[in-house]
């Protein structure tokens, strides 16, 4: 579904990703771990189509098509979803309005009939219950005044409603207490499906106790330095990231295909 080959990305001339390769198939869950500043969030944003990054080389193919030439909204409609590390506030725009506009933009693209207000409300209310959000959040401005946990739940809600094919979760666990973490993980797990791939970016192993990945990759200095199964996450938790800096280059070659 997603093939990243030798991706090189810089910001203001400063290289962030240095030849990153990653291959993700439908139905798989990949975790990307790594220390701060390793390029995790950059990868997420480049996949979603943020244009403040300079792609210097490499290719990204999604569903057989070149992803990098497509604008963000086209990627989104084609099923690429990014759960933001820092969800953005939009004052004066109600969550309900925003969600409905997004859902219908995606539905139009997929040739489905747009949801009317009644159908949409029915759907969104049941999904909100599942992620433990009160109905009042529908009528509040998008993310405005939400706590960290509420923002993250709102991201999971959007993800559920938009039914992406490829969902990238950028540190969705950061700043969450254990209850919120469970709710978020639960929401993500319900999304696991044979035709859907998930990339879970996290700094801590904690989240992976609840979302068990098929593969774990370690990102350092803009490239994947090590790949393995879920046991790698536990190893990282124990030993930290420092030992990886010295790890031999070969370790990176176990990239899953």
């Amino acid at each position: 579904m997603l093939d990243i080959n030798d991706l090189r990305v810089s910001v203001d001339g400063k290289p962030i990703l240095n030849g990153l390769s990653l291959h993700v198939k439908a139905g798989e869950v990949h975790a990307i771990m790594g220390p701060n500043g390793s390029g995790k969030s950059t990868l997420a944003q480049v996949l979603a189509g943020r244009d403040s990054f300079q792609v210097d080389g490499g290719t990204v193919t999604y569903d057989g098509e070149d992803l990098l030439t497509q604008p963000a909204e086209v990627r989104a409609r084609a099923g690429v979803f990014l759960a933001f590390q820092y969800p953005v506030e939009i004052p004066g725009v109600s969550n309900a309005y925003f969600l409905k506009a997004a859902v219908n933009a995606v539905r139009r693209h997929r040739g489905l009939q747009e949801l009317d207000a009644m159908d949409f409300l029915k759907r969104v209310k049941s999904e909100m219950k599942a992620v433990g959000m009160k109905e009042e959040f529908l009528y509040r401005s998008v993310n405005e005044g939400f706590s960290g946990g509420e923002k993250k739940r709102n991201e999971v809600l959007q993800m559920t409603l938009l039914e992406p094919k490829l969902a990238v979760l950028d540190e969705t666990d950061s700043g969450l207490d254990i209850d919120a973490l469970k709710v978020v993980a639960d929401g993500v797990n319900r999304l696991r499906a044979p035709d859907r791939a998930l990339i879970v970016i996290t700094h801590y192993q904690r989240l992976l106790d609840y979302i068990v990945p098929d593969y774990v990759h370690v990102l350092a200095n803009g490239t994947i330095v090590r790949s393995g199964g879920p046991e790698l996450a536990a190893e990282l938790e124990e030993r930290g990231y420092a030992w990886l800096a010295k790890a031999p280059e070969e370790q990176a070659k176990g990239v899953t295909t």
């Binding site: 979603a48 189509g49 943020r50 403040s52 604008p71 963000a72 909204e73 990627r75 989104a76 409609r77 979803f81 990014l82 933001f84 969800p87 953005v88 506030e89 939009i90 925003f98 506009a101 997004a102 933009a105 995606v106 693209h109 959007q158 938009l162």
Partner: peptide, 16 residues
Amino acid sequence: EDQLFYAMQRGLSAED
């Protein structure tokens, strides 16, 4: 740019 990108990442056109 943050707000725009956020909305566009959800499928909205820049204009919308």
